[in-house]
Design a protein around this nucleic acid. Structure first.
Ligand SMILES: [Mn+2]
Ligand SMILES: [Mn+2]
Ligand SMILES: [Zn+2]
Ligand SMILES: [Zn+2]
Lengths: 136, 136
DNA sequence: TCCCCGATCTGGACTTTGTCTAATTCCCGG
DNA sequence: CCGGGAATTAGACAAAGTCCAGATCGGGGA
């Protein structure tokens, strides 16, 4: 499956999102790269040739994608949020010097011994972040 | 052991921090409460009676405490950093609706199956965040 | 085809969190 | 009681994100 713009439109419809020009471009930026991107980076990618999509639309669209479950948020850097086209359960490796963020498959990772949740609470997600840096 | 201001001074000296008036107040805010506080909250606490400590000093001091290993940073909310007086290994439970953040003792939690680190990298820390919300 | 109208997009003002700097104040050691 | 390095400060600045009122888009019906 190639990440053509037509396929992006289908993907959006499948998530109950009306596929507009801007939304298709933003989805294409994320899915064709399969990378973690900040709003800023999405903005830059989508407006490389000439300015086409406003800041407001980039932020609104990323929030829409998030609500519809098309992307996931990764909170790892206090200064910006990353958006992740990979919504399968997985964890993250964060290189603190470079800011590089990569996926860790959740398949083989086991987390045990967590306490019971407070009553009437449900888990929305478990984020595991391994922070690494160059050996001194 | 009570969290008196005198004890705060001793604590600071033990971490190679010159105990000034402002630093003692900020340490006292964090340690007497044993809670996760944002810079803003620290600022408010320290300046309740009348303004005593500037914004610049609050930020500078929290960063100093962080560098000296007196507190830890917790990154769970995209809009602000929390400072944690508990530097023992532990994880966090985050209630997404309320913003309430609480500790999970790392003692009984086991994480296994993490992949080997890239060469020349060392782990700086492993953050585990359980995001929960009120059952629908 | 043409028009209509709800959905979408937009510029730009605004807010919040955090950083920076040059000037002042503090306080310890002599 | 100085002198001077360390610490603090006000306020300007920056970056990420939000918000709003007005402009534009575009697809279905006449
Ligand atoms: Mn999906
Ligand atoms: Mn910020
Ligand atoms: Zn990821
Ligand atoms: Zn904690």
């Amino acid at each position: 499956m190639h990440y053509t713009r037509d396929n992006m439109a289908t993907l959006l419809r499948g998530h109950d999102i009306n596929p507009t020009h801007q939304r298709i471009e933003i989805a294409h930026a994320l899915f064709s790269r399969q990378e973690h991107l900040s709003a800023d980076q999405v903005m830059a990618i989508v407006n490389t040739r000439h300015s086409e999509t406003s800041k407001a639309t980039v932020y609104n669209t990323l929030k829409l994608f998030l609500d519809k479950g098309l992307v996931r948020e990764v909170i790892v850097d206090p200064s910006k949020v990353f958006y992740d086209p990979n919504t399968l359960p997985h964890h993250h490796l964060y290189e603190v010097d470079t800011g590089k963020l990569s996926d860790i498959d959740a398949m083989h990772v086991r987390i045990s011994g967590l306490p019971d949740l407070p009553d009437g609470m449900v888990t929305e997600g478990i984020d595991l972040i391994v922070r690494v840096r160059r050996a001194a």
